[in-house]
């Protein structure tokens, strides 16, 4: 029973919060939920499969473009949205088969390279709108009911996040998940058990890509417009920052990480657009925030916020008892 309390809490927040938010904050909510969805996958990948992906935004982009292109060509939007994670996962499986032989910084650069290749190809692909981008993506409609207002997308993004969290939890609690966790901390153990771990790695890679693809699909319908420039390398780095800051290998970690960072960046953005601030202020502040938080966190809080908070709470409890 207890294991359902956090899930219930998350559902309550995702269900009750959006209507209470003023219109201008709904956009932040949507982006936060989408970023958190991708980060759940990144955290799974880094914490449970011991892999750093600096190209997770590729799968976000693949999902977004898949959904967008299908919808533009007349496929019902909901079908496009469902296809997005599948296509992203298939792409990840095809890419992962050769790439996941790499480890550590090699894998980091390989995933980065994949993203750069994807961006370059997209910019040259006229059928995907080229560098100018893909326009005229219809709005998402579910059962003949078209989502127009941000509130609808807030629920769509919230549902997507919830699905990712529930799947991730099941994976973590499965036998395979526990095996993977052991493998993530010891390459030797992984090598010893051979094929099976390789298969799990690929599965987690594909799953994390599916989460990113699903979030990307919602993103495509929400914005109605996609361009290669919407998926910079920096976006991939941001997902890593969120995962690391929140704490790898926990379910709450990516949610907290994405929450803290998106809100902080939003706050500084508001600050940066105050009258009297130079035009570059918002960009500069957000770069600085990502950088400083990442560096301080890996050096001084290497396990991330959630595990740190848990152990602090544990100490407090022991101290008072």
């Amino acid at each position: 029973m207890r294991r359902w309390i956090p899930a219930g809490l998350l559902i309550a927040v995702l269900a009750l919060l959006p209507p209470l938010l003023p219109e201008r904050h709904l956009a932040t909510f949507v982006l936060l939920a989408l970023a958190a969805t991708v980060t759940v996958g990144v955290s799974l990948l880094m914490g449970y499969a011991g892999q750093v992906s600096l190209g997770q935004a590729s799968f976000y982009a693949i999902g977004a473009y898949a959904a967008g292109l299908l919808a533009v060509h007349g496929v019902p939007p909901l079908l496009g949205l469902l296809a997005a994670p599948v296509i992203a996962a298939v792409a990840a499986t095809l890419l992962g088969a050769p790439l996941l032989r790499l480890r550590g910084h090699h894998l980091a650069f390989a995933t980065l390279a994949v993203q750069l290749i994807l961006l370059s190809l997209l910019a040259q692909a006229d059928w995907a709108g080229g560098a100018i981008g893909l326009q005229g993506i219809p709005r998402l409609s579910i059962g003949g009911f078209e989502l127009r207002a941000d509130l609808g997308y807030a629920y769509a993004a919230g549902s997507v996040l919830l699905i990712a969290v529930l799947i991730a939890r099941n994976v973590i609690e499965s036998r395979a998940g526990r095996g993977m966790r052991a493998a993530a901390t010891s390459e030797t153990a992984a090598a010893a058990s051979g094929v099976a771990i390789g298969g799990y790695r690929l599965a987690v890679f594909a799953l994390s890509a599916a989460f990113a693809g699903l979030a990307g699909g919602v993103y495509a319908f929400y914005l109605g417009y996609l361009a290669p420039g919407s998926f910079p390398v920096l976006l991939s780095i941001e997902f890593v920052v969120m995962a690391v800051v929140g704490g790898l290998g926990t379910i709450a970690g990516p949610l907290v990480g994405a929450g803290v960072i998106v809100l902080l960046v939003q706050l500084l953005n508001t600050l940066g657009t105050q009258p009297g601030m130079p035009g570059y202020a918002p960009a500069v502040l957000s770069y600085a925030v990502y950088a400083v938080i990442l560096v301080v966190c890996v050096l001084y809080l290497p396990k991330g916020l959630v595990p740190a908070a848990r152990s602090a709470a544990g100490k407090l409890r022991r101290g008072s008892a």
Binding site: M46, V52, R103, G104, H105, F109, A110, A113, E187
Partner: peptide
């Protein structure tokens, strides 16, 4: 350039087995 780099890394990894360094 990028495909060249990926190919080199994958060939190297195939020759020497998975590279042991882990970034976190």
């Amino acid at each position: 350039a990028l495909v060249l780099m990926l190919t080199v890394m994958i060939v190297q990894a195939a020759r020497t087995g998975p590279v042991a360094e882990t970034a976190r």
